[in-house]
Structure formats: structure tokens, C-alpha cells
Computed example of a mutant assay.
Amino acid sequence: MYDMNNLKQLGALGKNAEPAMKAFQALDQAALADGAIPKKYKELMAVAVALTTQCPYCLEIHKDHAIKAGATQEELAEVTFVAAALRAGAAVVHGTHLMEK
């Protein structure tokens, strides 16, 4: 199901929902642009989110963008464990809802 070639259909998607696609692209560009937070760190955050949401398209795209922005293999490895810790942490704190009061 997941094939990077599917991204070639973004043009058709955008053509059929042009205002929404243009708005999404503007948001995406603005959110990931260099700013108070440097682009490299934003792309590392995007990788962490993609690991958490398990989106293979986002993983591939943002991994490449992070590397182009200067991220190292060590940083990508560390961001993997940040994502893992947060995902596991969410399960732990949600477990408090299971405890009797």
C-alpha cells in the first residue's frame, strides 16, 4: 500500500481540492521554514512526529530534509528514542485512568 510513487498523485489531489491544497502547502512551508527554531531542528521534530504517527511518507521526506539541513545519523538515532520515550510515556500516563480512585 505504501509506495513513494503514490506521491505522484498529489497533483491530482491538489487539482481536485485546489484551495485546500494551496492552504496546506502554505502552512507546511511556513511551519518548516527557518525561523526562531532552525530548519534542522524543525525537520528533526518532523521525524519524531512521523515516527510517532508511523507515516512512512513523512519519515522518508523529513529524513531526507533533515539530512539536507545538516542532521547527522547520531541525531536521527537520538530522535528515534525521543519519539519512543514519548510514545511509551503516553501509554504510562494514560494508564493512570485505569487505576481506581
Rank of each mutant, 00 (worst) to 15 (best):
Met1Phe: 11
Tyr2Asp: 15
Asp3Gly: 02
Asp3Val: 04
Asp3Lys: 12
Asp3Leu: 07
Met4Arg: 07
Met4Ala: 09
Met4Tyr: 08
Met4His: 06
Met4Lys: 08
Met4Cys: 04
Asn5Gly: 05
Asn5Pro: 05
Asn5Arg: 08
Leu7Trp: 05
Leu7Ala: 12
Leu7Phe: 11
Leu7Val: 10
Lys8Glu: 04
Lys8Gln: 05
Gln9Thr: 06
Gln9Gly: 08
Leu10Ser: 07
Gly11Glu: 06
Ala12Lys: 06
Gly14Tyr: 10
Gly14Asn: 11
Gly14Gln: 10
Lys15Asp: 07
Lys15Pro: 04
Asn16Asp: 14
Asn16Gln: 12
Ala17Asn: 11
Ala17Trp: 07
Glu18Thr: 13
Pro19Val: 01
Ala20Tyr: 11
Met21Pro: 03
Met21Thr: 13
Met21Ala: 15
Met21Asp: 14
Lys22Arg: 12
Ala23Thr: 08
Ala23Pro: 06
Phe24Asp: 02
Gln25Tyr: 14
Gln25Asp: 15
Ala26Ser: 10
Ala26Gln: 11
Ala26Asn: 09
Ala26Leu: 12
Asp28Lys: 00
Asp28Phe: 02
Ala30Gly: 02
Ala30Asp: 12
Leu32Val: 05
Leu32Lys: 07
Leu32Ala: 08
Ala33Asp: 11
Ala33Met: 01
Asp34Val: 01
Asp34Gly: 02
Asp34Lys: 01
Gly35Pro: 09
Gly35Ser: 12
Ile37Ala: 07
Ile37Tyr: 04
Pro38Tyr: 01
Pro38Ala: 14
Lys39Trp: 11
Lys39Arg: 14
Lys39Met: 13
Lys40Phe: 13
Lys40Leu: 00
Glu43Lys: 00
Leu44Pro: 06
Leu44Cys: 04
Leu44Tyr: 11
Met45Gly: 05
Ala46Ser: 07
Val47Trp: 15
Val47Asn: 06
Ala48Ile: 07
Val49Gln: 03
Thr52Asp: 12
Thr53Asn: 13
Cys55Ala: 03
Pro56Ala: 08
Tyr57Pro: 08
Tyr57Asp: 03
Cys58Pro: 03
Cys58Trp: 10
Cys58Asp: 08
Leu59Trp: 01
Leu59Lys: 00
Glu60Gly: 12
Ile61Pro: 07
Ile61Met: 13
Ile61Ser: 03
His62Arg: 08
Lys63Tyr: 13
Asp64Glu: 12
His65Gln: 10
His65Lys: 12
His65Thr: 01
Ala66Gln: 02
Ala66Met: 00
Ala66Val: 02
Ala66Phe: 11
Ile67Pro: 08
Ile67Gln: 15
Lys68Asn: 14
Gly70Trp: 04
Ala71His: 06
Ala71Gln: 10
Ala71Gly: 14
Thr72Lys: 04
Thr72Ala: 02
Glu74Lys: 03
Glu74Gly: 02
Glu75Asn: 09
Leu76Met: 01
Ala77Leu: 13
Ala77Thr: 13
Glu78Cys: 11
Phe81Ser: 15
Phe81Ile: 14
Phe81Ala: 09
Phe81Lys: 07
Val82Phe: 14
Val82Gly: 00
Ala83Val: 05
Ala84Tyr: 04
Ala84His: 07
Arg87Ala: 10
Arg87Glu: 09
Arg87Thr: 09
Ala90Gln: 04
Ala91Trp: 05
Val92Asp: 03
Val92Lys: 02
Val93Gly: 00
His94Lys: 02
Gly95Cys: 04
His97Tyr: 10
Leu98Ile: 00
Leu98Glu: 00
Leu98Gly: 00
Met99Asp: 08
Met99Ala: 15
Glu100Gly: 14
Glu100Tyr: 15
Lys101His: 15
Lys101Leu: 15
